[in-house]
Amino acid sequence: MDHERAHWFKSSYSGANTTECVEAAHLRHAAAVRDAKAPDGPVLTFSNASWTDFLTAVRHQQFDK
């Protein structure tokens, strides 16, 4: 997968704080995530199904204590 040509974006919740952000990109058959402070660093890649499951869990606050 070519992460270099991906359109990376930050969450609208990030605001001006870029010290604790991740960036995401939609790839053809996957989603990619990287540290905004280190765009040339490692990239985590998730299947579309896994990424959708993760986002659904976040929206339903399944990770909140």
Rank of each mutant, 00 (worst) to 15 (best):
A24I: 09
M1Y: 01
T19V: 05
T45E: 13
W51I: 06
M1H: 09
W8A: 05
L27D: 04
G15D: 02
E20I: 05
A30I: 05
A31K: 01
K37S: 13
F63P: 06
L55G: 01
A57F: 04
A16Y: 01
A16F: 13
S14H: 07
V58S: 06
D35W: 02
S47K: 04
D40T: 15
P39R: 04
K37F: 03
A31T: 08
D64N: 09
K10M: 02
A25Q: 11
T45N: 11
V22C: 03
A16N: 11
V58Q: 02
S14W: 01
S12T: 13
H3E: 07
H3L: 07
A31R: 05
Q62G: 01
E23I: 03
E4M: 14
R34Y: 01
N17R: 04
Q61Y: 08
T45V: 15
P42A: 15
S12E: 04
C21N: 09
P39D: 12
D2E: 05
A30L: 05
L55R: 11
E23G: 06
S11W: 02
S11T: 01
D40S: 13
A57M: 03
P39H: 15
K37E: 14
H7A: 06
A57S: 11
R59M: 10
R59W: 10
K37Q: 10
K37A: 05
L55E: 12
G15K: 14
D64S: 12
T19D: 12
K37D: 08
R59C: 11
S11H: 10
E23V: 11
Y13M: 06
M1R: 10
R28Y: 12
F54A: 03
Q62A: 12
F9G: 08
L27A: 09
W51K: 01
M1G: 11
D53F: 00
A25M: 09
E23P: 08
G15H: 12
S47G: 15
H60M: 13
N48K: 12
V22T: 00
K65F: 10
A31E: 12
A6H: 12
S50E: 06
H29F: 07
D64A: 15
S50T: 06
A30G: 05
V22F: 14
A32Y: 12
S12F: 00
A30K: 09
R5D: 02
E23S: 05
M1F: 10
D64G: 09
C21V: 02
T18F: 06
T18G: 06
E23W: 03
A25K: 07
F54Y: 14
G41F: 01
A36Y: 13
P42V: 07
A25V: 03
D2L: 11
A32T: 04
A24V: 12
E20F: 02
G15M: 08
M1K: 14
R34S: 02
A16I: 03
H29R: 00
R59G: 07
F9T: 02
L44F: 11
K10I: 06
S12K: 00
D35Y: 08
S14A: 15
R28T: 10
D2P: 00
A57C: 00
R34K: 08
A30M: 00
K10S: 14
E23A: 02
R59Y: 00
K65T: 07
A32M: 06
H26A: 08
A16G: 09
P42K: 14
A57R: 13
E4S: 15
F9I: 04
S47V: 10
A57E: 00
A49R: 15
A38Y: 14
F9W: 06
A49V: 10
R34A: 03
S50R: 11
D64Q: 03
K65W: 12
